[in-house]
Nucleic acid binder design. Structure first.
Lengths: 171, 171
DNA sequence: CATCGTTATATCGGGTCGATATAGCGATGT
DNA sequence: ACATCGCTATATCGACCCGATATAACGATG
C-alpha cells in the first residue's frame, strides 16, 4: 500500500522507494520486503516496470493500481490496531475521503485508550511483583501512548476546523 | 529470549506467557509465534514440558536454558537498533551485568539520536514537497524519539546513582 | 587507475502475523 | 436441567517480513 501511495506521486526505482519509506518512519524496512513486494504488485498489474538510467528499473503505478490503492485506503474496516498500517494510511491521508478521516483518527484513539487502560491495570496488578526496570518500561509505554493520543487530538481538531493546518498547534 | 526470561520467574503455560508478553508491551504478539517458539525451545532443550491442570502444558526452563538466556542477554553486540529486542533486554535488565547496562542504554541512545538527526534532515529536505499529514507524521516521529531519549537519560542517571530507583525521577 | 563507499537489484532461510480450527470451562438465563 | 456465550487454551497454515548475503556498476579521492 505504501509503495502504491508513493508511486502515485510519480515514478520511482526500488532503492528510492525504500529511502522514502524510511523517511516515513519505517526505519527498518528491508530490501527483502521491497523487491518481492514490487514483483507481487507487478504480477497483479498494479504497477509497471520500464528500464531507467543505468541498471535502474523505473516503477510506475497503473490505473488499476490507483483504483486498488483507493479501495484499500477507503476501506471502512481499515486496520487501526496495527501501528504501521495506521501510519501508512495517515501518510496518504490527502487521498482519503475527508468524511472518513476523523472517524479513522477516532478509532485509532479508541485503540490507544484501551491499551492505556489495560496497561494501567496490569501495572497495578503486578506493581509489587515486577522489578523497577520492567515497571519503568511499562510506565514509559503508557506515557508514549498518552502522547500519541494528544497528537491524535491535535490532528482531529485541525481536521474539524476544515482549514486544517496541523503543525499550527505545534509545540 | 522473552519466553526464557519469563520462565526464569517460574513455570507457566503458553497462554499465560502470551499475556505476560502483552503486559511487557508486545500488544500484538501472536499464538502463531508463541507456540512454534515453545516447540523450538523444547527441541533445543532450553525448556521442558509437563502436563498441567486440564489441558494445559506447563513449561519450565532448564539449566541449559538459563545459561543460553544469560549468554544472549550479556552478548556485547546485543541488538540495540531493533525496538523489540531492546525492550526485551530492558525487561530482564536485573539479570544483566551492571557494568554493561549503562553501555547498553548509551548505545540505544546513539541509535535514536541518529534517527532524530536523519529524520530532521529529511524533514528539511522535503518540507515543501510533502503534504501536512506526512509532515505531522514525521514531526511526531521526532518528538517520540526525543521522549525516548529523555527516558533513557532518566534510566542512565538512576543507574549511575547505584541505588537506582527509576520512577523516583518520574514526572 | 586502484580502491572505497554508495547506489542498486536480487534471493534465501528462518521466523512472525492473522486467520482459523478445535474444545473444555464457567457463568448467566430460562 | 441444559442451552448458549464468552473466555481459556493449544495448534496449524499460508502469506509475508526481516537480516544476511551476493553481485555489480558508479563516483570520488588520492
Amino acid at each position: 500500500m505504501a509503495i502504491l501511495g508513493l508511486l502515485r506521486e510519480g515514478p520511482m526505482h526500488g532503492y528510492e522507494l525504500k529511502q522514502r519509506l524510511v523517511d516515513l518512519g519505517f526505519w527498518r524496512i528491508s530490501f527483502g520486503s521491497v523487491y518481492p513486494a514490487l514483483r507481487r504488485l507487478e504480477r497483479a498489474r498494479f504497477i509497471e516496470v520500464s528500464p531507467g538510467s543505468g541498471r535502474r528499473k523505473e516503477y510506475r503505478i497503473t490505473a488499476e493500481g490507483k483504483e486498488h490503492f483507493q479501495q484499500i485506503l477507503e476501506d471502512e474496516a481499515s486496520e487501526v490496531e496495527n501501528t504501521s498500517a495506521f501510519r501508512v494510511r495517515l501518510a496518504f491521508f490527502k487521498y482519503m475521503n475527508p468524511e472518513t478521516r476523523i472517524d479513522f483518527l477516532e478509532r485509532r484513539k479508541t485503540v490507544l485508550r484501551e491499551r492505556i487502560a489495560s496497561a494501567r491495570t496490569s501495572l497495578r496488578r503486578t506493581a509489587d511483583r515486577v522489578d523497577r526496570y520492567t515497571q519503568s518500561l511499562m510506565e514509559h509505554g503508557v506515557r508514549s501512548a498518552e502522547a500519541d493520543v494528544a497528537w491524535l487530538d491535535e490532528l482531529i481538531a485541525s481536521e474539524r476546523t476544515q482549514d486544517g493546518a496541523p503543525g499550527a498547534e505545534k509545540i
